[in-house]
Design a protein around this nucleic acid. Structure first.
Lengths: 112, 112
DNA sequence: ATTGAACATACCTGATTGGTTATATAGCCG
DNA sequence: CGGCTATATAACCAATCAGGTATGTTCAAT
């Protein structure tokens, strides 16, 4: 699953950059503001997850996006997708019907 | 971002279970096959991410899904969504035009 | 009041991970 | 060839984390 790969903000940043155009490792290194080996390490993980591909050009390495694995994420999300719509509808209808009511619900959303 | 929360397979499993109906901690513990404190810990993380809510019923705790934060994931995904469609189209057209050709591309997808 | 049930929190531990610096590898150019 | 450029890999470190056991807390039922 590509979820753990996407968990890393830097990695999402890389994908966002590659969405516009392929990039060299050096370019990414500069854009991300981290060390070159650090960048290469992230790229390796993205490569192994199939999210990017490399094109060799002499010593250069052009990294380009492969969005295919994101489809899995999208699929996992699918059964949830209708929910936030209907939930929002319900909320709207509620707010519509009863404008400010004290509402002593026992619901709780992280009391910490 | 809820990405890191979703990176954990057990946590996705919990959400999948809650998608059907609210569950007690004990039920989840059994379904997941891990210790009760372990379950509670995951639930805490999900709570703090706003992905679940709790309803108190005496000593019982009913955990229920709140899909709202998943919307952020969906939104992050949005600019990528058109891509895999068009990419697939291109592939199909390609396969259509040239059925099995040796194809010595310089492309590479993790040579490891 | 005491016990037991349901859950949360504290604490510890081994594994993973994101970052670094140092070093290898590969290819261009003079 | 020799040195320079671009990238990858190795080795290391501090922090985070998932899991467990032990213990606290709250409430119902007797």
């Amino acid at each position: 699953m590509p979820f753990d790969v996407l968990a890393e903000p830097t990695r999402r940043h890389i994908l966002d950059l590659l969405r516009e155009r392929p990039h060299l490792v050096g370019e990414l290194t500069e854009a991300l503001g981290l060390s070159q080996p650090g960048t290469s390490k992230h790229l390796r993980i993205l490569r192994e997850a199939g999210l990017v591909r490399v094109r060799h050009d002499a010593q250069r390495r052009w990294y380009e996006l492969d969005p295919e694995p994101l489809r899995q994420v999208d699929e996992w999300l699918t059964p949830y997708r209708w929910m936030w719509a209907s939930r929002l509808d319900a909320l709207e209808r509620h707010l519509d019907t009863m404008p400010d009511e004290p509402e002593n619900s026992d619901h709780e959303r992280d009391p910490s």
